[in-house]
Design a protein around this nucleic acid. Structure first.
Lengths: 204, 204
DNA sequence: CTGTTACGGTAACGCTTGTTACAGAACGAG
DNA sequence: CTCGTTCTGTAACAAGCGTTACCGTAACAG
């Protein structure tokens, strides 16, 4: 054996650089040289750490998935930690949905990255599979939270309600990446509130 | 003056080719050579008809906008032409939304094209402006239909409801491009039905 | 009929891309 | 210390990109 550096740290660093380039320059500007420059190294290191560009993209995609999942976990736990009041499950659902929306500029940047990966997945089967896995995990999370809010609903109704909420949030994210005026944070918040109230909340 | 061929037909033909390439090969495969080969000509003709690639993309984007607008017009008119029953405005809203969703394979292909343009708009201001214009027109259309269904709601409530429905449909479209199993036509239809019923329909 | 003008194709340019081969540097083992 | 292995940077490669200059060709004006 010889040198055994922390290659895992390199992978994380390069994935983060991939992410930043994707957020700033878009999908078209995402070249190996741009990533290398962003990470402060050359393309040689990049392709020594990852077999090829697709492997780099796939790793960055998984990193994004893990990040959003952790963020959702935190939001869900934080909402339930208030007090065991009457509307705790609804608060958790609302908290997770609002956290998934792009209310802050950081979240909007993440949405741009997410959208870039989605567009890339249209012609990359591996990225497509990763996207499907991540999105289905999100759908299952929302389905569970919906069931917690409305135990009276059947499984199909819960699944449909979850699909509505997930599609709504991801649609808001996608549209907000280009039109942050129409899809302002307030507008997004109001939309999520209305949808939650209509599907799960008070059956007025 | 000399030859005066139908250059407008060429523009339409090339835009259609752009569209097809974008649907089949994705944003990365959208090169001038691919478009030219698809249209049965060379790149010379392409760049004689359009100043550069961005102009070609912009024209194809406008063509997509006009197409979706015409389709929405047809759906709206068709739903209102049944009989002047009690729930005509709700039917029109539902028809427009379902037509905008990707229930058929042709509509899914259109959604892939739409998504490609959206991703391209992240780093192209002209495409971004075209997208914003088209989407706002759609939002206004839905807002008008919502107002027709629920004259009792205030302007803000109508706007929020429209934003929910638009984001829902576009989210369904985006997600269905990659996962046509979870976002099957039946699932999309059920989602739209639930959302319309919850926001506009019977206030149960 | 002839000249002018728009049109379409050919081929090349310069550039960037992903990828690979090679050379030097850094560290652990003997 | 010295060898050998692992790592990183350099440089080059072929391929593809958008774009441009150039050259026939066909059609209308006079």
């Amino acid at each position: 054996m010889a040198k055994r550096r922390e290659v895992e740290a390199q992978r994380a660093r390069l994935s983060a650089a991939t992410w930043e380039v994707l957020a700033e320059q878009g999908l078209q500007g995402l070249s190996l040289r741009a990533v290398a420059e962003r990470a402060g190294c050359t393309t040689g290191l990049v392709l020594h750490t990852f077999r090829d560009k697709r492997a780099l993209l796939a790793h960055a995609r998984e990193l994004l998935h893990e990040r959003t999942a952790a963020s959702a976990d935190a939001a869900e736990a934080g909402a339930g930690a208030g007090e065991p009041g009457e509307a705790a499950p609804e608060d958790a659902l609302r908290a997770v949905l609002l956290q998934a929306a792009s209310l802050t500029s950081a979240a909007r940047e993440e949405a741009r990255v997410w959208l870039g990966f989605l567009a890339a997945a249209l012609s990359d089967d591996e990225l497509a599979e990763l996207h499907v896995r991540g999105n289905r995990a999100f759908v299952e999370r929302i389905t569970r939270l919906v069931r917690g809010c409305r135990p009276d609903l059947g499984p199909e109704a819960c699944a449909t309600a979850a699909l509505v909420l997930v599609s709504l949030v991801e649609g808001l994210n996608s549209l907000a990446t280009v039109d942050d005026e129409t899809y302002s944070p307030e507008a997004q918040r109001a939309a999520v509130e209305v949808a939650v109230a209509g599907l799960v909340g008070r059956p007025a």
